[in-house]
Each structure stands twice: as C-alpha cells, then as structure tokens.
C-alpha cells in the first residue's frame, strides 16, 4: 500500500470550545429565565408594585398582607388537603393497579393503556369532563336519582366545604396511571429469585408484597411522592377548569391565587410574594430529594 501524506492542518476551535459555545443558549436561558427571574420575583415581592412593577421597597409588607388574607389561608389549606388526598390516592391506587397487573394477567397492555390514557389529556379537558359529570342538575347525582334513589346526593362541586375534594378526585383520575407506571417499573425490577425464595419458604403472596417488596420499592415511593407533590403545588389548569376556584374562593389553590393577583387583580407585589412562598414550599420538599439523588450519584 502506498503512503498518504499526513492530513493538512485545518483551522479549528481550541479543544472544548465547541461544547462551550453550544451551551451558550441553554446557559443564558437557565441563568436568565430561571434564576434571574426568581430573583426578580423575590425583589418585586418586597415592593408595593400593583399593576406595574415599581421599586418602592416596603420590606416584608406583602408577606404580612398575604398571610393576613383569609383567601390565601384558604388556598394554602386547600393545597394541604388536596396534596394529601391526591398523593395518597394516586400512590395507593397506582400501587394496587401495578400489583394487579404484575400478577401476570393476559392483555396486560390493554389495561396499562387504559390506566394511562387520561395522562395524555390536558388538565383542562379533565376538568371539563368532571365538571359535567359532577353537575348536580344533570350529572351523576341526577342520573342516580333517576334510577330510583331519590335521596342520593353528590353535589360536592357546588358545596364550599367539598369542592376541593372534587379537584382531588379528578386529579387522581388523571394521574393514577403515572403512579401505576412508576410502580410497575419498580416491580419489574425486582429480582425474580426473591419470589422463588418466598415461594419455597411458603410465604403468602400478600405478605411478600407487604414485608419484602414494598420496602424494596422505597425509592420508587419516594420519587413518585416528590413528583406528585410538585404537580400538586403547580396545579392550576385543573382547578380553573373544574371549579374556577369556587364556589366563592372555597376551592382556590395558591397557583390560581397567584395568577389572579398578578394578571387580573393588579396586585403584582402580593402575587409575587405568593409565588415565592410556592417556590419555597416546593424547595422544602424537593431540595432534600435532589440532594440525596445527587449523593447517590443517580442524578
């Protein structure tokens, strides 16, 4: 074979410059649109901005106003209740469905597809469907009464003390498939030999799930809880479409409260304070999670 001359030296970027350049847009977006904006919102929450931002600093006055507002407290309490119901419901039902599917059913794909179907839909769509079904005059209540149960009452949508439960119900319906998928993946990752060993030892199936499998899925429970919590805090579309925060403000959530104060109530400073409290709520839960993930080197 003949020799070729060594390739001519081409002009090129110094080593490592190309990836750095490629990262410029992402770095700019991250820095400006995530972190600078958080700082901006925090700064605005310290001012008396109303319709437009101004820089009259009034210290923590907006936070004082926020926590003096009964509407905000209602929204916070609703978030607490909603988060507990939503996370608890999704986890419990999702885990149960995952276990049922994992028992080795035929047509597993069909069930899985059905359970995850609502995930593909918008929260607005979910909200409107459930609003229709829960409509006391024409929905489930009326239909059941039509079957002869004249006293049947399911009018939570229009009851101030129950409306938030309907939001949780619709939320669970939409997101239960997510939990099921996470848990199913977790169950599939368990060493089949554990099942063989348990069978040899004669341990009943339910005990294996309770005492062996569930503790092994600790990380999955952890992850799904974090995800659901972050979803709950961000819940906006669903409550808008389902109850509009009503009746009155009885099913309001912080995300809706903030949006309303920033966009339509000309209370930018107060809204910013609310938004910052939301961020702190998420951070309080997610930060330890990310820290642990990072320490495990999984992130």
């Amino acid at each position: 074979m003949t020799e070729t001359c060594p390739p001519r030296r081409r002009w090129r970027l110094p080593q490592g410059a190309a990836p750095a350049i490629a990262l410029v847009p992402a770095a700019l977006i991250t820095l400006v649109c995530f972190y600078l904006f958080i700082g901006w919102t925090f700064a605005i929450s310290l001012t008396d901005s109303r319709l437009l931002p101004n820089w009259e600093f009034i210290g923590l006055e907006q936070y004082r106003r926020l926590f003096a507002s009964s509407r905000w407290w209602t929204a916070l309490e609703n978030l607490g209740l909603y988060a507990v119901l939503f996370i608890g419901g999704c986890t419990l039902l999702g885990y149960l469905l995952a276990i049922l599917i994992d028992r080795g059913v035929r047509a597993e794909g069909v069930y899985r597809t059905i359970f995850m179907l609502p995930l593909s839909m918008s929260f607005v769509v979910t909200g409107i469907i459930w609003q229709w079904m829960l409509n006391p005059g024409l929905g489930i209540q009326q239909a059941v009464r039509g079957l002869g149960f004249e006293e049947f009452a399911f009018n939570w949508l229009v009851r101030a003390d129950r409306a938030i439960f309907t939001v949780a119900l619709a939320g669970i319906w939409q997101q239960v498939g997510l939990c099921m998928a996470l848990f199913l993946a977790g169950l599939r990752g368990i060493d089949p030999n554990i099942w063989k060993a348990a069978r040899v030892d004669g341990i009943p199936t339910w005990r294996v799930y309770l005492d062996i499998v569930t503790p092994m899925l600790k990380a999955t429970f952890f992850t799904s809880t974090i995800l659901l919590f972050s979803l709950a805090v961000k819940s906006f579309d669903l409550v808008v479409a389902l109850t509009g925060g009503g009746p009155g403000f009885s099913s309001d959530l912080p995300a809706r409260f903030v949006m309303e104060h920033i966009l339509t109530r000309q209370e930018l400073g107060l809204g910013a304070a609310g938004a910052f409290v939301m961020l702190c709520t998420i951070a309080a839960v997610v930060a330890p999670y990310l820290y642990l993930q990072n320490r495990r080197g999984a992130a």
């Binding site: 060594p6 390739p7 030296r9 081409r10 090129r12 080593q15």
Partner: peptide, 12 residues
C-alpha cells in the same frame, strides 16, 4: 514532527 499538542486526526 512534534505531535504532542496535535488532535488525533492530525497525527496520522
């Protein structure tokens, strides 16, 4: 040829 600082594809 001193190739200490050359990228792989220029080293032949």
């Amino acid at each position: 040829r001193d190739v200490t600082r050359l990228p792989p594809d220029e080293r032949d």
